[in-house]
Computed example of a mutant assay.
Amino acid sequence: MTNDAAMTPERFAALADAYGADLRRWPSHEQDAAQAMLATDPANARDVLARAATLDGLLDRHRVPAPSSALIGRILSSAPQPGLLWSRAKLWWSGLGLAGIGLAGAVTGALALSLATPALLDHRSTGLAEEQTIFGEVDLDGTAP
């Protein structure tokens, strides 16, 4: 698709500013129109491309220096410490968990004792409490078959 009719000197300059002097970097649907502009108005188009080439060269030569170790250290020291709040929350939850485990053990022990107590009381009422346990009769004399 060509945009021959839409290419104006202003549009050509805007595209050169955006994409640089190398027409291969321009959008593919604009390249044919740019070539036509170069053929119809070569002086103006080459002047625009020369300015774009100067900017391309400046941008190509620009280098950003690596950060110094002092800057890296300041950034790392000022960063929030991860997990400080989380470690406090873990400590709180672990204490709550230990209390819950202790409470569960106490409730289980109380339940076991409450279930065993009626059986103990029933055996004592028979008068043979010294020979019986919660699990049944115990042969103390060794005379049981």
Rank of each mutant, 00 (worst) to 15 (best):
Met1Lys: 03
Thr2Met: 12
Asn3Tyr: 04
Asn3Val: 09
Ala5Lys: 12
Met7Asp: 05
Thr8Met: 02
Arg11Thr: 05
Phe12Tyr: 04
Ala16Glu: 00
Asp17Asn: 05
Tyr19Gln: 02
Arg24Leu: 07
Arg25His: 15
Ser28Leu: 12
Ser28Gln: 15
His29Gln: 12
Gln35Trp: 04
Met37Pro: 00
Leu38Pro: 01
Ala39His: 06
Thr40Trp: 02
Thr40Pro: 00
Ala43Trp: 01
Asp47Glu: 15
Leu49Gln: 03
Ala50Cys: 02
Arg51Met: 05
Ala52Gly: 09
Asp56Met: 04
Asp56Val: 06
Leu59Met: 14
Leu59Ile: 13
His62Thr: 07
His62Asn: 06
Arg63Gly: 00
Val64His: 11
Val64Pro: 00
Val64Ser: 13
Pro65Phe: 04
Ala66Leu: 07
Ala66Ser: 07
Ser69Leu: 08
Ala70Gly: 06
Ile72Glu: 10
Ile75Glu: 12
Ile75Lys: 08
Leu76Met: 09
Pro82Ser: 09
Gly83Ile: 03
Leu84Arg: 14
Lys90Met: 14
Lys90Thr: 11
Leu91Ser: 09
Trp92Met: 13
Trp92Pro: 00
Gly95Pro: 00
Leu96His: 02
Gly97His: 13
Gly100Val: 06
Gly100Ala: 11
Ile101Tyr: 04
Ile101Phe: 15
Gly102Val: 13
Gly102Tyr: 01
Gly105Leu: 15
Gly105Pro: 02
Ala106Val: 12
Ala106Tyr: 02
Thr108Ala: 15
Thr108Phe: 12
Thr108His: 08
Leu111Gly: 09
Ser114Asn: 07
Ser114Phe: 05
Ala116Leu: 10
Ala116Phe: 05
Ala119Asp: 07
Ala119His: 06
Thr126Leu: 08
Thr126Glu: 02
Gly127His: 11
Gly127Asn: 09
Leu128Thr: 09
Leu128Asn: 15
Ala129Gln: 12
Ala129Tyr: 11
Glu130Leu: 10
Glu130Trp: 12
Gln132Lys: 08
Gln132Cys: 13
Thr133Leu: 07
Ile134Pro: 00
Leu140Gly: 05
Leu140Tyr: 04
Asp141Val: 08
Thr143Lys: 15
